[in-house]
């Protein structure tokens, strides 16, 4: 299997889906000459023509709204919102329209669209450009929210998202574009709403998504050297959420720790912890803990930013605290 970057994997997914289905088109900010803020659409305008790949002004509201309209009109748009921070300017269209069309009009019409946006911090872009806002969108019924951590999942999930008949917010992570991994060539689909055990272990379940999956894996490797075997579950999709995989793992390890870059309050970790205790309370040997981003607007200064984003050390410490509660 070829080793390619996350960026290339996403690029391949777009290319393959555009070739497969003429109704797929891409528009958004700087997708043509710039090739997207992170280069994912580079070259697509040249190969597929500017009728199918074209720039939009800096106007997120109309980018998102036009994607909804285009989907209602029979197209399968992939709209590029550049970053999740700018999706806030489109939140009305995403939440009040994209997520509502299907149910509010009695199931007459779905809106098959994908909105791609970069999320996450760690690149010293300061507080308005470093946010992890996925839980805000995952909160909304009618939307699907996908957060791939690896190149293979990036490709497989993006292809599935484009084929899906519902609106999908596809959140990439700013620090993952250069990460390499094995990616199957051609038809490679990863179903939306399916988590994956990325590493097996018997002592504790680490539930993560997006870049934190990689950080959790790193922590698991380090813990292994100390004789602690952590299982790492990558959620991959936040809505729909695959609790089956999470619960199966917790029933095996009897302990769980959630890991997210986003703020702790009202977050994904809170949701996972709550569901585990609702459905597998008796299987738990210790209270569930959360490792999350520190609850501050992410500052620019490197030392402050680093201190605010979870790393392997913080995960390891939390794992040990959970194990200590059970004398493990």
């Amino acid at each position: 299997m070829p080793m390619i970057t996350y960026r290339e994997a996403l690029h391949h997914a777009l290319r393959e889906e555009m070739t497969r289905d003429e109704r797929v088109l891409i528009f958004g900010e700087d997708v043509v000459a710039y090739g997207g803020a992170y280069g994912v659409t580079s070259g697509l305008a040249k190969d597929y023509g500017e009728k199918r790949v074209f720039d939009a002004p800096i106007a997120e509201g109309v980018i998102a709204g036009a994607a909804v309209g285009a989907a209602m009109g029979g197209l399968r748009p992939v709209a590029e919102l550049m970053t999740i921070n700018f999706a806030l300017l489109a939140a009305d269209q995403i939440i009040n329209h994209a997520a509502k069309v299907m149910h509010m009009f009695g199931g007459q019409m779905s809106v098959p669209l994908v909105m791609r946006a970069v999320g996450g911090g760690g690149a010293q872009l300061a507080s308005t450009h470093s946010q992890s806002l996925e839980s805000m969108f995952a909160h909304v019924p009618g939307l699907k929210v996908v957060t791939p951590a690896t190149p293979a999942d990036g490709k497989g999930l993006l292809k599935s998202a484009i084929r899906d008949d519902d609106p999908v917010l596809f959140i990439e992570h700013a620090l993952l574009y250069r990460v390499r991994g094995e990616v199957p060539e051609g038809e490679h689909l990863v179903a939306l709403g399916k988590a994956e055990v990325k590493r097996e272990g018997k002592d504790i379940t680490l539930v993560a998504y997006s870049r934190m999956t990689l950080v959790a894996l790193q922590a698991a490797d380090l813990l292994s050297q100390e004789g602690i075997e952590a299982e790492v579950v990558d959620l991959r999709s936040l809505r729909p959420l695959d609790m089956e995989t999470v619960l199966a793992s917790v029933r095996k390890t009897h302990r769980a720790l959630t890991v997210e870059e986003a703020w702790r309050s009202y977050g994904i970790g809170a949701e996972i912890a709550s569901r585990i205790q609702e459905e597998a309370f008796d299987d738990l040997d210790a209270p569930i803990r959360r490792v999350s981003g520190v609850e501050v607007p992410l500052p620019y200064a490197k030392n402050l930013e680093q201190a605010a984003i979870p790393d392997a050390q913080r995960i390891m410490k939390a794992v040990k605290e959970v194990l200590a509660r059970t004398g493990g």
Binding site: Q124, S127, P297, P299, Y300, A301, K302, L304
Partner: peptide
């Protein structure tokens, strides 16, 4: 430079 003496205390860049 992201320093404490910056106009926004290094928080803004």
């Amino acid at each position: 430079f992201g320093k404490a003496t910056g106009v926004s205390k290094g928080h803004g860049g």
